Amino acid sequence: MLNNPVWAALSGPQAGYAEAAGDAARYQPDISPFCAVSDPADPAAWRDLATLTDYALLTGPALAPPPGWVEDVRLQGVQMVGTAMTAADDPEAVPLTEHDVPEMLDLVARAQPGPFRKRTIDLGRYLGIRSRDGRLISMAGERFRMPGWTEVSAVCTDPEFRGQGLGARLTLAVAAGILARGELPFLHTVHDNDTAIRLYERLGFEHSTDVVFTSFRYTG
């Protein structure tokens, strides 16, 4: 399941956010750019994906599409799991709602945590910390959700406020909500972000597998 998290999410708990065709699915475009096929080694699944989109962002341990799909951008990453971690709520963390989306998008533009769109917040619980003057300066939330697992995502802090542990606090707070549901948290980060990897290890996450984030164009 963790080897193909987007498919597990879109064919399971998050099917309501999917556009699907046969053995392929993608999130509705204003939610997330991620797509998935049930079996990356199955050419038929990629043909199904071509009926949904001609530009696809996928993640998994290995991705080798059949002819007709051309690799555009590849980014090496790691998947980490919190199978034995403990977490805690944070008294300064406030729930974020659709009314906060403009501020969230502005923070994402400054902090660059990865893909985040105007309806990404629909996927789960998002928490934020605000500065004394009310600005949203840090946030984290839930993205891919599958049976027994939920991904911690969009962990980011305004560059002006980094180094204060805000991202760590929110990661733990989001993970606490996941654990309280009887699920386990996991997350992804790029493979050369040593600072983030060390932080997540200190929080109790462990390396699960190496992954790639790859975008492909369908040329027919």
Rank of each mutant, 00 (worst) to 15 (best):
I137H: 03
Y55E: 11
I197S: 13
G22A: 12
L123G: 03
T171I: 01
P159T: 03
N193K: 12
L105C: 12
I129P: 00
T219L: 10
S32V: 08
A87Q: 10
L199F: 06
Y126K: 00
V190W: 03
D30M: 13
I197Q: 14
A64W: 10
G82Y: 02
D100K: 06
P65L: 11
V174F: 14
V155G: 05
G124Q: 07
L203H: 06
V94R: 01
E151C: 07
Y200K: 01
Y218C: 09
D54L: 01
R202M: 08
H188G: 05
P185G: 08
R110A: 14
D89T: 02
S208N: 14
Q79T: 15
A173D: 03
L105E: 08
L75R: 14
M104N: 03
D106E: 12
I137A: 11
L179R: 15
R135K: 14
L63N: 03
I31N: 00
R125K: 05
R169Y: 09
E92G: 01
D23S: 14
T171V: 03
D194T: 02
W46F: 09
M80Q: 12
L107G: 01
H99W: 04
D39Q: 04
P113Q: 02
F34W: 06
T120C: 03
L58F: 03
L49H: 07
V212K: 06
T189H: 09
Q28I: 13
L57H: 10
D192F: 08
R143I: 10
T51Q: 05
D158F: 00
Y218F: 13
R181Q: 15
P67S: 12
D42M: 09
G182C: 11
V6R: 13
F186K: 07
Y17H: 14
D39L: 04
P95G: 02
R198D: 12
V152W: 08
L2G: 10
V78K: 13
T171F: 08
V94P: 04
T209C: 04
D72N: 15
P115S: 08
P13K: 14
G167Q: 01
D90N: 12
L10T: 06
L199N: 03
R143P: 01
M85V: 11
I31W: 01
F116E: 07
I178H: 12
D106N: 10
